[in-house]
Design a binder for these strands. Structure first.
Lengths: 337, 337
DNA sequence: CAAGATCGTTAAATCGATTTAATTCAATCT
DNA sequence: AGATTGAATTAAATCGATTTAACGATCTTG
């Protein structure tokens, strides 16, 4: 029993394997009566196409790969949904893997997609996208970078201006009257993090008399945020920042949590707080958080569009770099009385 | 250029394709000198195995499929991570798709995995698991249900006792002195939801003089939670529940948010609140939420273990149903003064 | 009515890697 | 020397679906 192939179906329907294939792929070339007979045989035997064989012949698969930095992060959850929605309408499946912000895993996963001869890859790269991009490119597999652009224009990307986001956040804090700002985030090897920091510095440099400091974290998580705060708690009021900008919302939630637990510092009175990503949860936080919003879903959708147009090989195709602008969403964590 | 195959590698290295394959798969059967020569040719040409061809011959792939109800939900994020961690150690890749709590999507995705001849499928079913399970089973593809068991013992599953979870939550509310409890959740077609409700009813029935009502929601999201509250806000104090138990944390966060925004009802004084899943964010909520914790990561890990042992076809293999017990995590939202 | 066009179908080649059975050649044994 | 063993390698078959070129049958058309 077990494996039912076209041959079996063909035998039962009394036709050749080629005809079965035609029924499946170009029914217009087959007579009505034959279609019915073949369909009946297919149902009878419970036949299911062997994807591997199909793909081997076709040379490419019907799926695309998506490598994200962290499936647990709701920002990527939204991005994935945007991508999937667009992909299904094109009859294509999105296969998701999680690189965990780890270069080795990213490499392994890209290599797997390469072996699978996927139609294309959406990549949210850990550090330097170039090696992975080169690899895929040399094999003729289209790549679109998400949430990150490359300096040159040879590869398509959909990103958000992270420098602008950092600027927005810190400028807002300065406008709210704060003069000692701490940036919490890391590792700096992640481009989004360093870009946001660059933006923050830029905003600081536009004003005189603003102190700025950086607290490096090993990862972008709630616990890392909590840990980063410990350093601040011991200081006396004059040495302590009166505002914190974090590289993402998870960190911000961690910071907030630890401040509340410590009990002697109030948000926003003593410390204002701005996060990044505007995930659903920040508006339900102990103190609703001001955050920088990125159009996650839209990024996913646009990325699929770019990828498919590149994969369909329009002769006049040229890589495009789409850059969305982030927006500031003000909430209680930066409200001045 | 484009496609480099074993043939090209073999030609350049001056050996037969079979030897190249041996170098790749059983290097012990090949002499040292030959290995080196082949490796050199592989590097030189940038050869990458064609997964489809490999799999066609092998009859099965090196990946397993995981269908979750909602990638955006951190509970599944943790589950995915647990599964991936276990899988990589076995050299297997996890392909994730999101059914969006939609039966048609689930069917499509299961069918895709079927075509791909995956090693096995981890399924978190929308409604009735049976059709999908039957299909995969009849094709000899192992299935493990996650976050949901089937009444009979013919299929492996890793789940959490949702009835017990509902009981835990409501019993706690009653012990805290509440006597009018509302359950917020839906759609009831999702087994987890109805099980939690069953547990809640059970706890209610063990005490005299406890009022209980059900507010049905169309989905398990923050907005759905907010919407569900609107009904309660208009009531006067005697008709209003003094405690709410929600089918998951997202709903609870929505409920909390709307109560805070409305302004006239305090948590926990006027309304106590218990959520479900204990996602990271609930401890950073405006009022840290009491919740029912499920060992998400552990579920993912265990599911992979069961799947692999079934796939490896130990002769003495029998399906196992692993049921974990949920635990109550008490926080401010149910603190009595 | 013969020559061509059309339609439905099929036989056979193909995609690329793996595997089995066969072959070669050198080393070991009697 | 002749026979035996063993290791290294190869030729050829195979997995299952798709596709190309060819075929026979029916239908047009001049």
């Amino acid at each position: 029993m077990g494996v039912v192939s076209v041959k079996d179906v063909a035998a039962l329907a009394g036709v050749s394997p080629g005809t079965v294939s035609n029924v499946l792929n170009r029914p217009d070339r087959v007579s009505g009566a034959t279609i019915e007979r073949v369909q009946w045989a297919i149902d009878r035997l419970g036949y299911v196409r062997n994807g591997a064989a199909r793909q081997l012949r076709a040379g490419q698969s019907r799926s695309i790969g998506l490598v994200v930095l962290d499936v647990g992060n709701p920002f990527f959850g939204d991005l994935i949904r945007g991508a999937e929605d667009k992909a299904v309408t094109a009859g294509i499946t999105v296969l998701v893997t999680d690189s965990r912000e780890n270069t080795d895993r990213e490499r392994t996963q890209v290599a797997l997609f390469e072996e699978q001869r996927v139609r294309g890859v959406l990549l949210s790269p850990v550090v330097d996208a170039r090696p992975s991009v080169e690899r895929l490119r040399s094999r003729g597999i289209p790549v679109v970078l998400v949430d990150r652009a490359l300096p040159d224009t040879s590869v398509s990307s959909v990103s958000v201006n992270d420098v602008a986001g950092g600027e927005l956040a810190v400028r807002h804090l300065i406008e709210q009257g704060r003069r000692h700002i701490a940036f919490v985030g890391g590792p700096m090897s992640i481009r989004q993090v360093s870009d946001r920091l660059t933006g923050a510095r830029k905003a600081v440099s536009e004003h005189n008399g603003v102190r700025f400091e950086v607290i490096d974290t090993p990862e972008l998580s709630v616990p890392a945020g909590r840990h980063a705060v410990l350093d601040l708690l011991g200081r006396n009021a004059s040495a302590r920042p009166d505002a914190v900008f974090t590289a993402n919302d998870l960190l911000a939630l961690g910071v907030l949590q630890e401040l509340i637990l410590a009990g002697n510092l109030r948000v926003p009175e003593d410390v204002m707080l701005v996060g990044y990503d505007d995930i659903d949860f920040v508006q339900a936080a102990i103190v609703p958080l001001t955050s920088i919003r990125q159009p996650a879903r839209l990024i996913g959708e646009t990325a699929i569009d770019l990828l498919l147009s590149e994969a369909d090989g329009d002769p006049g195709f040229a890589p495009r770099q789409v850059v969305y602008q982030p927006t500031l969403v003000k909430r209680a964590s930066t409200a001045s009385r």
